[in-house]
Amino acid sequence: MQLLRSYRLLVTWQALRKKNYLPLMLAVQTLFTLGIVLGYPLLFPTLDRTAIYLIATGAPAISMLSVGLVALPQTIGEQKTEGSLAYMRSLPVPRLAYLAADLTVWLAIVIPGVVLGVLVGAWRFGLDLQVSPLVVPAVLLVALTSACIGYAIASLLPYMLTVIITQAIVVFVFMFSPLTFLPDKLPGWFEVIHRILPIQAMGQVTRGTIAPNMFGLPLEAFVTLCVWCVIGFGVTYAAMTRRG
């Protein structure tokens, strides 16, 4: 009971803290997704239908990764530096409630923009998206996994290192991850790495549930994401409860 009560109150607190930025973040997230969906075809005007489907269904994963692995860890890093994270950790609430509340608010920020971006992209290119009901757990899992990994990075590393690493991740996600292209475009050894990392799996579960008529939905991708999600959450929880 105390867990639920604390969770509810902390969600209110965190949502109020972020409410001034919520419309802006929503707009940025939508534009981010749209920017990928609409921008790639401008760069490469001869894209075929499959490539457009790949881009439109890979963009949500990129968008969620950009929040979870960049915006979130940088914010947490700032909170660590200014002492506000320590203050929140000093509150008489279960740390699990705090972490769950914070992650809930982050998911609430990222998901509407992603949905809006996909809808506008589908409309613009007249895509036939036969969205599966599994899209709900899939998007939640992708957003949560990114957020948990981002949280873990920020919890473990000093602020400046967090900023540098997250910038490197952005480049890796955008340029060298099979989200807007298929993995067979990568060298063999790179494919192996992406079978272990969660990024490719994020692309697979989003596109496999947004356009199941076009792409498969490998169970293995769900398993990979669950493992990374548990690792990210576990590391973060350990860091939150650890006394220096």
Binding site: L16, R17, K19, Q79, E82, S84, A86, Y87, M88
Partner: peptide, 8 residues
Amino acid sequence: SQVPIDGL
């Protein structure tokens, strides 16, 4: 440190 209450 200041409390994190901007927005509240």
